[in-house]
């Protein structure tokens, strides 16, 4: 028995003997396995980076949100066409952290006598009659662990348009800024391009004559604006 085995081991080339299945020999395609694994690993890293970046990108998480509202109120008509100031409705924006959504009474200032039978305004009339508030859907919503103050920004001369975009052209209000921490910090580090004279804060179409950064730098110096970038500025 033993001599037979020995003869077999020495005399046969691998893979050609009658029992070559007993021994494992890497097939030829595995010669390039190392390169293939390297390529796959690289591809995997790229894949993960793209996926994580895509999932966490502000474009993905915030921009473009334009919820349907219970009343199809058009900013483009009221602000763009009729030229009404933001503060006609958002009264508290200059004095409070929050820019209020107006009470139904504000709508009824005009709609008591204008478009009194319009279907679009049915919910407004019902609210005015019953006192039940209209359930508007919030568009711009910062995380609850972020402190933001409208009054501070408006008083410093940051225009509404800087964060909210051309609301005067919006049929349905849409979020245009990412409202992310990086985006906030960008302006807190360099507010100059977004500063304007106080009287133009609500003007949607105002553009400075000359260089906005230059005007901003002047306004910043005049009003002693120095936005903080401490954690506790917003996370308090």
């Amino acid at each position: 028995m033993a001599p037979d085995n020995n003869a077999h081991d020495q005399g046969q080339s691998p893979g050609t003997g009658p029992d070559h299945h007993d021994r494992f020999v890497f097939p030829k395609w595995t010669n390039r396995l190392r390169e293939a694994v390297a390529v796959a690993a690289l591809g995997g890293v790229v894949y993960l980076v793209v996926l994580v970046a895509g999932v966490f990108s502000p474009q993905n998480s915030a921009i473009g949100y334009a919820p349907e509202q219970p009343v199809p109120y058009s900013h483009s008509l009221h602000v763009g066409e009729l030229g009404m100031d933001c503060r006609y409705c958002h009264v508290t924006v200059e004095t409070s952290a929050r820019a209020n959504v107006p009470p139904t009474a504000t709508c009824m200032n005009c709609h008591k006598t204008v478009r009194t039978t319009s279907d679009k305004l049915a919910a407004v009339r019902k609210s005015a009659e019953t006192g039940e508030p209209i359930h508007w859907t919030r568009v711009h919503d910062l995380p609850d662990f972020v402190y933001f103050n409208h009054a501070g920004h408006v008083q410093s001369g940051v225009g509404c348009v800087s964060c909210h975009g051309r609301v005067d052209r919006m049929e349905v209000v849409e979020q245009v800024a990412p409202l992310t921490m990086g985006w906030c910090l960008e302006c807190h580090r360099n507010p100059d391009p977004n500063l304007r004279p106080r009287e133009f804060v609500t003007a949607m179409d105002w553009v400075p004559e000359g260089d906005p950064a230059e005007l901003g730098a002047r306004l910043r110096a005049e009003r002693k604006i120095s936005p903080s970038v401490d954690c506790a500025t917003c996370h308090r």
Binding site: N60, Y65, P67, N100
Partner: peptide, 29 residues
């Protein structure tokens, strides 16, 4: 991801890490 990027405009955006974004206290209005 592509679908989340192309959500209909009236749907809330994708929230990847929602922890403490919405806290249980009552806010103005």
């Amino acid at each position: 991801l592509y679908r989340a990027n192309h959500l209909p405009k009236n749907q809330p955006r994708l929230q990847v890490v929602p922890d403490m974004d919405q806290q249980f206290y009552y806010k103005a209005q």
